[in-house]
Design a protein around this nucleic acid. Structure first.
Lengths: 215, 215
DNA sequence: AAAGTTATGGCAGCTACTGACAAATGACAA
DNA sequence: TTGTCATTTGTCAGTAGCTGCCATAACTTT
């Protein structure tokens, strides 16, 4: 795959939109890293790409949105993969397999997306409002995943919270894994991916014992 | 306890500050519920209490902050309780005991705080930006709790992520519990508290099996 | 009662964000 | 090619969140 961000074949109009979209993202990430997230204004971003401010807000909901826009593709991939896992499979197995799909996508991204991934990880480190945006993304993905697992298991997600509990615990482990990467300034996809896998594996051996330990 | 929000004995100045602070909170919550969170402006809140907008921002960082300000006290209580648990205790036991402390505080709050609690729960339901603020609060509490558990266990929190994993999973269960309350419009502390305890107990029996199920 | 400390108010200003309308630009068919 | 249609873009005007600055008012202390 050449990354999920390019619009293979399409009309001139669509290609042009994608170009300005990613031009805005790249300009924003560069400015954020150069002079700080809060200190960067929308006006500076749109000036670098030479579009109007109004156009910016037609593409993105705000600064936080453009900063994290790279990751929405991987989230979508994760959810799509989860929806196609065989129904008989245990929840955690399905979640780990779907996570592997999105991690593979991160590792096999093209150069442009890899560069954006690195920049984003450097940005999140030391920018609380972007980190807060991350939390929102994880929560949305969690919601979608819980719905899928509940349907798979054939239970009503309103009366039975167990699918949601499993997904929440799983996603929180993934989140902690990414957070340790940010903290240790591990920005390379080739290093991030195995670390996330490793922490999920560690959680799988650690957490069951931690919960049941009631002396 | 008469709630953690009143300033027992103190100078006139301090008492006055607490009064305007909670007057602002109550005015804000009422306005948010009456005409919607986004539709309520800071100007309307300060007009109801008759202070200047500038003063508002000396008390609160913004709308999100004032909406969730009631809960910061309970968070502080949770962290303080966790810090005083005996060091030999297993992490999850310490976390559950500390959670009980903050849940007891919620149930034994005075009438004013109970009313605020109810309003806040009604507000979060259907107000995404306030719900997002909740996520940030939980993340901050998680950070603090992880640090305490790491010190207790005598491990370096940088090299050993296990304390953080346990706390993250635990806090995510608590968060899901609150979310189900909001979804089911359970606003009464007397109903919220047992439900949170129940979901934590359910997680304790469900999650270990879910993680280890690797056929 | 005076001096010192701290909270408040008023203002000026910046930035994020939105609605409405007009101009430009790509899409498509005759 | 040209004319028509749909969509995108720019401009403008306005609202609201938020901050720094300085003078004034209010409590505190001696």
């Amino acid at each position: 795959m050449a990354g999920m961000t390019d619009a293979q074949v399409a009309g001139l109009r669509e290609r042009k939109k994608q170009r300005t979209r990613w031009a805005l993202v790249d300009a924003a990430l560069d400015l954020f890293l150069a002079k700080g997230y809060e200190a960067t204004t929308i006006d500076e971003i749109v000036a670098a790409v030479d579009v109007s401010q109004r156009t910016f807000f037609r593409y993105f909901a705000g600064k936080e949105d453009i900063a994290l826009s790279l990751l929405t593709g991987y989230d979508t991939l994760f959810i799509a993969a989860l929806a196609e896992r065989p129904p008989g499979e245990p929840p955690v197995v399905a979640l780990r397999a779907s996570l592997d799909v999105s991690l593979d996508a991160i590792r096999e991204s093209d150069d442009a997306d890899t560069a954006r991934f690195r920049k984003l990880h450097r940005l999140i480190d030391g920018t609380p409002s972007v980190a807060a945006g991350q939390l929102r993304r994880f929560a949305e993905t969690e919601q979608a995943a819980a719905r899928i697992l509940a349907r798979r298991a054939g239970v009503d997600e309103v009366t039975d919270p167990r699918p949601h509990l499993v997904v929440a615990a799983f996603m929180s482990v993934v989140r902690v894994a990414y957070e340790t990467c940010v903290r240790d300034e591990i920005t390379e996809p080739a290093e991030v991916v195995p670390r996330v896998r490793g922490l999920v594996a560690l959680a799988a051996e650690t957490l069951p014992g931690a919960w049941s330990a009631v002396p």
